[in-house]
């Protein structure tokens, strides 16, 4: 309970910032110093929505099988499977569900060309299924800036009604430390950094 409360307080601080004055995402990220991160007792991600110039920290609020639900202080959610976004809620143009099996396999050495399926909600409460044809390419290595861990960089280019490019930075143990992942035409991409595993 104690650690949960501490975590909530930390989130509260960041989320108040995001609500009240909407500081620059870079400023918000800088406030998450290594010392503060070291005090965290539970997983956390830091998410930037570049098209809206907003950022927030998210903590787990649910775990169903391999899917983890993360939530901001103000109730916006994303759901991830191995760090890959399969749903969002509260963004106005949400990703309702996704089959990211192709991406997941490609990051682990599987086929590099594959089709993903994602669903959106129409304005009339109907499910719209959209296929995405993707190609994954490895783009070398670098170090994750926050903790110096070496990561492999992968770029995924997908064609659909909108074409987009996702980027994944994966650590030696398979942890997705940083990624840019497409959500929808209305939201654009989210930049997701793993703050604490």
């Amino acid at each position: 309970m104690g650690k949960f409360l501490a975590m909530r307080w930390l989130c509260l601080v960041f989320m108040l910032c995001s609500c009240a004055t909407a500081p620059d995402p870079d400023v918000m990220r800088a406030m998450l110093t290594p010392e503060q991160v070291a005090q965290l007792r539970a997983p956390m991600i830091f998410v930037v929505a570049p098209t809206r110039r907003v950022a927030a920290t998210l903590v787990p609020v649910g775990q169903n099988g391999g899917v983890r639900t993360w939530q901001t202080r103000d109730g916006v959610q994303i759901a991830t499977q191995n760090g890959l976004v399969i749903a969002s809620r509260g963004l106005g143009f949400d990703l309702m569900s996704a089959d990211i099996g192709g991406t997941s396999a490609a990051l682990r050495g599987g086929p590099l060309r594959y089709t993903r399926l994602v669903t959106y909600l129409s304005g009339d409460a109907q499910t719209i299924v959209v296929p995405q044809t993707c190609v994954m390419t490895a783009q070398g290595r670098q170090r994750h800036p926050a903790n110096g861990i070496p990561v492999k960089v992968f770029v995924e280019r997908c064609q659909t009604r909108d074409s987009f490019e996702n980027t994944y930075h994966i650590g030696p143990d398979g942890t997705l430390w940083w990624s840019r992942q497409w959500v929808s035409a209305g939201v654009g991409a989210l930049e997701i950094e793993r703050i604490r595993r």
């Binding site: 649910g62 959610q77 809620r89 509260g90 106005g92």
Partner: peptide, 24 residues
Amino acid sequence: VNPMRPPYPSGFDLGPAPVRPRSA
């Protein structure tokens, strides 16, 4: 304006309380 094309198709509805599996 088209009633079938709202400005925010999925709304800004806050995330739901997630399902809690019995195994959890």
